[in-house]
């Protein structure tokens, strides 16, 4: 009968499969790897960076991008930018929110409250698409989770604008970006050094703003991240202790039988 060296067969074939991998993702440049503070098992957000990131979002991104799943109150919640209650109220009040209908059946506007959702720049997707040359600026609430590469990818796109290489022609309103799939993006490069004046005096370089706003977006997509990490560490410690106790009990119980567990 046929004799296989099964192990060798597996190893060789697996190596073959792995070596095939790069063929598939050749058209995309891997995003820049950033050492985010929220990475890893105990990662937390950099509070100051979140607050600066919110400022960039508010002054730059929010003119086109909605964040419809966030409420102003989220800005003051633990694990987020943690603005003070007064600051959250002031931020919310700086927006005019449409409410109603009132007792006369009329819609009216009023200053925002912390319980309001983030105000969207456009009334609907169609309006947003029409105002942006046919490209809908995606809602940014879960954008970091909705892109392969996550925060690294978002950051890379923000700093990845370049002049197109010779031979590449771009239509009006299309820009060249090294990290975007297909290298063509309809969002112009909106970040330039000194664009925002950070309240905490940090120098607003393009890189700094891209990092801050990406941190803010990462929090927006996963506002539970810090609590999740904290709880996770406790749960794992608890489970490991319990597993050890159960293991010892099992050894004791099975010692009455002549079989190894």
């Amino acid at each position: 009968m046929i004799k296989f060296n099964t192990k060798l067969f597996f190893i060789l074939t697996f190596l073959l499969l792995i070596s095939l991998r790069p063929l598939q993702s050749a058209e995309m440049v891997d995003p820049i790897k950033v050492d985010w503070s929220f990475k890893g098992l105990t990662g937390t957000f950099d509070r100051a960076s979140l607050q600066r990131g919110f400022q960039v979002y508010k002054e730059v991104c929010a003119s086109c991008h909605s964040m419809q799943y966030l409420s102003y109150r989220n800005l003051g919640e633990p694990g987020g930018p943690e603005f003070s209650e007064q600051e959250v109220k002031a931020i919310a009040a700086s927006f005019e929110i449409e409410d109603g209908p009132d007792s006369q059946g009329e819609m009216f506007t009023r200053p925002g409250k912390p319980s309001d959702k983030f105000k969207s720049p456009y009334p609907n997707t169609q309006a947003a698409t029409a105002a942006n040359g046919g490209a809908y600026p995606p809602d940014m609430s879960v954008l970091v989770k909705a892109r392969k590469g996550g925060a690294n990818y978002i950051y890379s796109v923000l700093v990845g604008y370049e002049d197109p290489p010779p031979g590449v022609t771009l239509d009006d309103g299309v820009y060249y970006n090294k990290y975007m799939a297909g290298n063509k993006i309809k969002m112009p490069n909106n970040l330039m050094d000194g664009l925002v004046e950070y309240a905490d005096g940090t120098e607003s370089t393009v890189d700094q703003m891209a990092k801050d706003v990406t941190t803010f977006l990462a929090w927006a997509a996963e506002p539970e991240l810090e609590e999740r990490h904290r709880t996770g560490v406790k749960v794992i410690i608890y489970l490991v202790l319990l597993t050890t106790l159960v293991y010892l009990s099992m050894r004791k119980i099975w010692s009455r039988v002549d079989t190894e567990v």
């Binding site: 749960v235 794992i236 489970l239 597993t243 293991y247 099992m250």
Partner: peptide, 18 residues
């Protein structure tokens, strides 16, 4: 079974939390 389940739960928790 309890011991094996706990080991399984540790892996499960690893996915859920991290």
């Amino acid at each position: 079974d309890a011991f094996a389940l706990l080991v399984f739960m540790i892996i499960f928790a690893g996915f859920v939390f991290f």
